[in-house]
Amino acid sequence: MPPPRATPGAAARADEAAGADERRLTALLTLAFLALLAGALLRYVLRHGDSGRLPWVVALSVVLAGTQLVRGGSARARRGRLGVVAVCWAVVVLLAPSFAWCAIPLVHTALRVLPVRAALAAITVLTALVVVAELRLADGFDPNLVLVPPVVAALATGVFLHLSRESARRGVLIDDLVRTRRELAATERREGTLAERQRLSGEIHDTLAQGLSSQRMLLQAAERQWDRDPEAARAHVRTAAGIAAEGLAEARRLVHDLGPAGLAGGT
């Protein structure tokens, strides 16, 4: 059974599906960030509604939400937006530590947008700010507040990098598979062409070549008997003519079989 063909349409559909998955993940991260941002802002308003920091917290929250909602652009533009979001988030965390957990979507965004080393550096800074913010919110020192954020960040980063490498390896394997299928398809076409040539060669040998050989022998016999036995010579000629007619019909059949299917009705 021949392997399935890797068609350009299938590759385009795969690229489209990958793009759709990327858009869904981006939308999910955006919604998660906005939900955490809204929850932190609501908490701050309810608990510190009379604080002089409230206008700054609200303004920074609006900037964060607006920047996060901007989509598209080049890789440099996405990195620039991430930088704006990270700086605004750091400032608002210093003003209101309850915004610390908005860093969770930022960690994933950094891993997707930045090079690995830059992403790791950014995640380290984000995690440190989360630890500081949580310690400021706590009544006293809690070792869990120091240990849990780095562990969670390390776990999320490790899982993301592992999945990214697995995805890259799968991409390489898929490319190899597509290339192999194309090579197999080309080999099958070459083998099919050779098989067809061999079939035609056999048919030509079995029909046309043998017919021509028979005609030659009959005409030679007719030439030898023409003066001595004209009737026998004419019989040989008639037989040769019949063989020639059969050979002509066979030649036309071969040409018809080799022609395009769409021309079959017009020949």
Rank of each mutant, 00 (worst) to 15 (best):
A38Y: 02
G39W: 00
G39F: 00
L41R: 15
L41Y: 00
L41T: 06
L41H: 09
L42Y: 02
L42T: 10
Y44F: 15
R47Q: 09
R47E: 11
H48V: 00
H48P: 00
G49H: 03
S51C: 07
S51Q: 05
R53V: 05
R53C: 02
R53N: 13
P55F: 06
W56M: 11
W56F: 09
V57K: 07
V58P: 01
A59L: 13
A59V: 02
L60N: 06
L60M: 10
V62M: 08
V62D: 11
V62F: 03
V62C: 05
V62W: 04
V63N: 10
A65D: 03
G66T: 08
G66Y: 01
G66R: 15
Q68N: 14
L69G: 03
R71S: 13
R71G: 07
G72E: 04
G73K: 05
G73R: 07
G73Y: 04
S74G: 14
S74Y: 05
R76F: 01
A77L: 10
R78M: 09
G80W: 09
R81H: 07
R81T: 08
L82A: 03
L82Y: 09
V84H: 07
V84C: 02
V85G: 00
V85C: 11
V85T: 10
A86V: 12
A86D: 11
V87I: 07
C88N: 13
A90G: 13
V92R: 06
V93A: 12
L94K: 09
L94H: 14
L94Q: 14
L95G: 06
A96H: 03
P97N: 06
S98H: 09
A100M: 02
A100V: 08
C102V: 11
C102Q: 08
A103C: 11
I104D: 11
P105F: 05
P105D: 06
L106Q: 15
H108F: 13
T109G: 04
T109V: 11
L111Q: 14
R112A: 15
R112Q: 09
V113D: 12
V113K: 02
L114E: 14
L114S: 05
P115A: 09
V116L: 14
R117F: 07
A118I: 00
A119Y: 06
I123D: 06
T124P: 00
T124S: 15
V125P: 01
L126G: 01
A128E: 13
L129P: 00
L129Q: 14
V130R: 09
V131R: 15
V131G: 06
V132D: 11
V132T: 12
V132K: 07
V132E: 10
A133T: 02
A133F: 04
E134I: 00
R136H: 08
A138V: 03
D139P: 01
G140D: 12
G140E: 09
P143E: 04
P143M: 07
N144S: 12
V146S: 11
V146I: 08
L147I: 13
L147T: 14
P149M: 08
P149C: 08
P150A: 09
V151D: 12
A153P: 04
A153H: 08
A153I: 03
A154E: 11
A154C: 12
L155D: 14
L155V: 13
T157F: 04
L161A: 08
H162D: 13
